[in-house]
């Protein structure tokens, strides 16, 4: 964008960021393959069309560092589900989740929720709610997603709302409420959002809800 064609006010040449593709700055690239051997970060150095990923490297250090900070603070209440390059998943019991989330926001730097998904597990009688948290403010975290999950009883699904911690979960939690039927305490509006006004069935993303004809 040049100045001559009338760039808008406040957007000078200096404002346009020029973030050169310097992925090497990110700590993650030191670990090319995760333990699961997934192909997330396997692209950059590979020139061959199909890359085999047989070798196993050690755990991603940077992600490990984030989790260690959490574990040292909260101890046993945090259960680490997996640590992959760029992806971390931890599980927290419902009673601690607000506290852990506040800590994640303030100390770890994950400042917004990208998505909130509730999954129904009828076999174990659980509903798992996962907050995928990302970071805009910290540049070294911008590629990471921290999946903060919690489980609640399927028949009496109640969870504390994270809306005080992350404002961005508001509509996602409302959607989870009507789609899976998790009631979020302290959420200002646990009511219909996407479904029809006269919806009188069970929440449609529960596993016992069957699509007609299927």
């Amino acid at each position: 964008m040049s100045k001559s064609n009338g760039s808008p006010s406040g957007n000078d040449k200096g404002d346009v960021a020029s973030i050169v593709a310097s992925n090497n700055d990110l700590p993650t690239t030191s670990v090319e393959q995760g333990e699961t051997g997934s192909s997330i970060a396997s692209k950059p150095s590979s020139s061959s069309a199909v890359q085999l990923k047989s070798e196993k490297t050690d755990l991603p250090q940077f992600e490990r560092g984030i989790v260690d900070g959490l574990v040292s603070k909260f101890g046993n209440s945090i259960k680490i589900i997996y640590i992959k390059p760029l992806r971390i998943k931890i599980e927290v019991p419902p009673k601690d989740i607000v506290e852990v989330a506040s800590h994640i926001r303030d100390e770890s730097g994950f400042d917004h929720a990208e998505s909130v998904s509730a999954t129904d597990y009828p076999k174990t009688g659980d509903i798992e709610v996962i907050y995928h948290l990302g970071s805009y403010t910290r540049e070294n975290l911008s590629s990471h997603i921290l999946a903060l999950s919690t489980r609640t009883d399927r028949d009496n699904a109640r969870l504390p709302s994270l809306i005080k911690v992350f404002k961005s979960v508001e509509y996602h939690e409302r959607e989870s409420f009507e789609m899976v039927g998790v009631y979020f305490d302290n959420h200002p509006r646990n009511d219909r959002f996407l479904l029809p006004e006269d919806w009188a069935d069970i929440p449609p993303l529960r596993k016992e809800f069957r699509i007609k004809g299927r």
């Binding site: 808008p8 406040g10 957007n11 404002d15 960021a17 050169v20």
Partner: peptide
């Protein structure tokens, strides 16, 4: 090689 376009207004 590309730039992320953003504005501050």
């Amino acid at each position: 090689d590309f730039n992320v376009q953003y504005m501050k207004t």
